[in-house]
Computed example of a mutant assay.
Amino acid sequence: MDSTNTPALETERLILRRFTEKDLDALFHIYSDEEVNTYLPWFPLASVEEAGVLFKEKYLEVYRQPHGYHYAICLKNGQAPVGYIHAGTDGSHDLGYGLLKEFWHRSLVTEAARAVVGQLKKDGVPFITATHDIRNPRSGGVMKQLGMHYQYSYEEQWQPKDIPVIFRLYQLNLDGQENRVYMEYWNQSSIRFKEAGV
């Protein structure tokens, strides 16, 4: 399988690379932590076997696409991934991330995200979006540090947890079209509004 569709990226402190089957223990560690996954739609993984299924369904499928932006976040002084960062290849170009809590508050996700955004811009992706649960404002802080701008809030019945969640949508246009706003979530939701002072 050609790895050029997910080129490795390097920052001051990090290597961003594809997940491999050798990373199943690390994937399990990241995706099984209840606190890390509190504001994510899926339930924490219960076994390494479940991590194997996740790897095949979530990562290998993306790596087969012409461009796949699903990265393992690895410290330069360590081999095992400590988190992940994804940029969707669908119409939303949604940015998502997760990091083991012992590595929180070091700006590692922001550093990783800047590298991914640079690659997306290089590849001609016109914009990115990102959403966060309003109960998780720290995630919104990462979005602001990337230069993303708040656009609107909306409610979604999140699956598979099947709970209603209010999200804030942020967007960064990479091609100079500053007035573009991704409206798909707004159009799909019956509860939608713009918050002042976000």
Rank of each mutant, 00 (worst) to 15 (best):
S3W: 00
F55W: 04
I134S: 00
L120V: 11
D175F: 02
K58T: 07
L169H: 05
I191D: 02
T38Y: 14
Q65H: 03
F43W: 13
D90S: 12
E57A: 02
G176D: 02
E10W: 08
T20E: 07
S3L: 04
R13K: 08
E61A: 08
G140I: 05
Q79P: 04
V116F: 12
N179Q: 15
G88F: 06
E34W: 08
C74A: 13
L108H: 03
Q79H: 11
L27D: 05
F127V: 04
G96D: 14
Y84A: 15
H70F: 09
D133F: 12
V82N: 03
T89Q: 15
S107P: 00
V82I: 15
G91H: 12
E49S: 12
R13Y: 02
R180W: 07
M148A: 13
L172C: 10
V198E: 08
H93D: 13
I163C: 09
E12N: 04
D23F: 08
F55M: 04
P7L: 07
P164W: 01
H105A: 10
N179S: 14
H29C: 12
D162E: 15
G91Q: 03
N187Q: 13
S139T: 07
S47M: 03
I85M: 04
A46E: 14
P137V: 09
E10N: 13
G91P: 01
N37E: 11
I163F: 00
Y185K: 08
E61M: 10
A130W: 10
W186T: 01
D90P: 06
D90H: 10
Y71K: 03
G118V: 06
Y97H: 14
G147L: 14
E156C: 10
E195S: 13
L14S: 07
S189F: 03
D33T: 13
E184L: 07
K101W: 06
Y97W: 15
N136Y: 11
L100R: 05
G98T: 02
Y182S: 03
T4Y: 09
A46R: 14
L40A: 08
T131L: 07
Y182R: 01
E12L: 05
E102K: 09
E10V: 14
H132A: 07
Y154E: 09
G91A: 11
F55Q: 07
L100C: 09
P66G: 11
D94A: 15
W104V: 06
N173C: 11
G88M: 00
I15H: 09
N136H: 13
D133I: 01
Q171S: 01
